[in-house]
């Protein structure tokens, strides 16, 4: 049975108030086709648990009014500066912030993936201000040594959105770039949606299993989304679209993200409409080169 559908269909049953895990690292592998579909659908009150190095997808979802709560490790635009909509929302208090970090998200999701009760850590948070503002960073007694240890709770999501370079119709997904912990996020989520630039033809030779990074049994839906990470990069397929990222940043800084959303997200019917709006010449020029 094929799991392949469109980005809009793939997110159609994500309800208001859902907890959503988001893949992508800085300007790379952002699941933008799925994020755009969520915004078109008009979903509200999401809780986001992005990877520890999150950027544009989170900023855009906040600007579009989809987010009620956000687990923060890093949300920014890396070499392009702060994420303007995240910054505004956090300063105005319109999005609830769970003050976390890399350990919070990685260890938390690892506990969620294995359904462990919590993770116990050696002294790391001690001396920092995180436990003061995140009441779920707690302490307990190590039953083996009697020492006091810091605990963080398991994190799980209702749905996980990832972008892959290639997937087959069963959902075996290949993420060619940095291996963050997409497989862990998938295990820590009740439902996994993968967008892929390319879907393997059922008659094509099976890919080398060593290249599959998220296996089919963990994947519920595959959205065929060529250039589905644009304007972030899809490692091995295309570079990030620097000009569009700068344009986004500048509009966001000016409080005009709505112009971007109107033009590229709600002003188009679907992902194909998005690609037409961006333009063929521009997309082809982004094809990955090693130069």
């Amino acid at each position: 049975m094929t799991k392949v559908t469109t980005p809009d269909e793939a997110v159609a049953d994500i309800p208001d108030g859902a907890t959503v895990a988001l893949g992508g690292v800085h300007s790379h592998n952002g699941p933008l086709a799925l994020v755009h579909a969520l915004i078109r659908k008009g979903v509200r009150d999401l809780t986001l648990i992005p990877t520890p190095s999150a950027g544009l997808p989170v900023d855009l979802l906040i600007a579009a009014g989809c987010v009620a709560k956000l687990h923060v490790s890093y949300v920014g635009l890396e070499f392009l500066g702060l994420a303007p909509n995240f910054r505004r929302a956090a300063e105005a208090g319109t999005v609830e912030i769970v003050e976390g970090d890399e350990a919070w998200i990685v260890f938390g999701m690892r506990a969620g993936a294995a359904r462990l009760p919590f993770m116990a850590l050696p002294p790391l948070y001690e001396g920092t201000d995180l436990p003061k503002v995140n009441p779920l960073i707690r302490t307990t007694t190590d039953p083996y040594t009697g020492a006091t240890v810091t605990t963080i709770p398991p994190l799980r999501a209702d749905v996980c959105l990832l972008h892959a370079q290639v997937a087959d119709a069963k959902g075996n997904a290949q993420i060619w770039g940095q291996r963050r912990f997409e497989d862990v996020m998938a295990k820590a989520s009740d439902r996994v949606v993968v967008s892929a630039d390319e879907i393997l033809d059922p008659a094509a030779p099976r890919p080398d299993p060593r290249h599959v990074t998220v296996p089919a049994p963990l994947v519920d839906v595959v959205a065929h989304a060529p250039y589905g990470a644009h304007p972030t990069s899809s490692p091995g397929h295309y570079r990030y679209d620097r000009e569009r990222l700068v344009e986004y940043r500048d509009l966001a800084l000016a409080g005009r993200t709505a112009d971007h959303v109107d033009r590229y997200v709600t002003g188009v019917k679907d992902h194909t409409g998005y690609l037409e709006r961006v333009g063929l010449g521009r997309l082809l020029a982004l094809r990955q080169t090693m130069g």
């Binding site: 702060l82 994420a83 300063e91 003050e99 970090d101 948070y125």
Partner: peptide, 20 residues
């Protein structure tokens, strides 16, 4: 102030690992 920041920064990322 954390609850009403003047500037919200990107976040702590890997900085707690200064303890490691």
């Amino acid at each position: 102030d954390w609850a009403r920041p003047k500037v919200r920064g990107p976040g702590t990322v890997g900085l707690v690992f200064l303890g490691g």
